[in-house]
């Protein structure tokens, strides 16, 4: 196995407040890794750095065989669009668009024409058990439905890495498990690497292994044992 993601001594501060103080991590290709830690430990910031959303103040980040912390904003955007998928806690769907347009959004942004993009998006509604909701707006979806739409959007581009930040955080435990089941199944079927940030042990139990982030550092094994 080769590393899909690697962080070396990543440090990042928000103003005076340090969020990461030298985090190291290796995620192998195809692995599902849960990033755990108490609130404020820096686990979300670590995910944001790994995904090229934030740029670390120090340290290096390698993703899919290339260094990404020195890419510019547009290059990182393209990386996110073409190689990564995202499922966040909430507020990630564009309210003005229908569910299928939301799912097709990464494809549209990537230059896929409207019709083929929507066709590919619609395939996911059946796979994730949300068929019939294609034309709904995000305001008309329940929390679980919205999260499945978000999952579909995260996977529609067949990403190499799926980043999930508290994907079940706004859901009850039953609905949350359904979403997690779908997430893990789909990711495995696509062979996608998954980085899953959660503070819930039961969500982390879906992963192959977990790493602990505390005070901006990775404390439990950063490498698969």
């Amino acid at each position: 196995m080769s590393a899909a993601l690697e962080a070396r001594g990543v440090a990042l501060s928000f103003g005076e407040t340090p969020a990461l103080r030298g985090a190291d991590l290796i995620v192998e290709t195809g692995e599902i890794v849960a990033v755990m830690g108490p609130s404020g430990s820096g686990k979300s910031t670590l995910l944001h750095c790994l995904a090229g959303i934030l740029v670390p103040d120090a340290g290096e980040i390698h993703a899919l065989g290339r260094r990404i912390d020195n890419l510019n904003e547009a290059e990182r955007s393209e990386l996110r669009r073409d190689r990564f998928g995202f499922v966040f806690q909430f507020g990630q769907l564009v309210p003005e668009l229908t569910a299928e347009e939301n799912v097709a959004l990464p494809l549209l942004l990537g230059g896929v024409r409207r019709e083929p993009a929507l066709r590919r998006a619609r395939e996911w509604f059946g796979r994730l058990g949300i068929d019939g909701l294609e034309r709904r707006r995000s305001g008309e979806l329940s929390g679980g439905q919205a999260q499945r739409v978000a999952l579909a959007r995260g996977l529609v581009g067949e990403p190499a890495v799926l980043f999930a930040d508290e994907p079940t955080g706004a859901l009850d435990s039953f609905t949350g498990e359904q979403v997690m089941d779908l997430l893990v199944d789909s990711a495995r079927r696509q062979g996608a690497t998954v980085v899953l940030v959660t503070h819930e042990a039961r969500v982390a139990a879906y992963a192959d292994r977990e790493i602990m982030v505390r005070d901006g550092r990775v404390t439990s094994p950063a490498v698969a044992s």
Binding site: R202, A204, A205, Y206, E210
Partner: peptide, 13 residues
């Protein structure tokens, strides 16, 4: 202990 617990939880999951 946490790792042991999580390992067991993974099995159960």
């Amino acid at each position: 202990q946490r790792r042991a617990h999580l390992a067991r939880m993974r099995e159960l999951t």
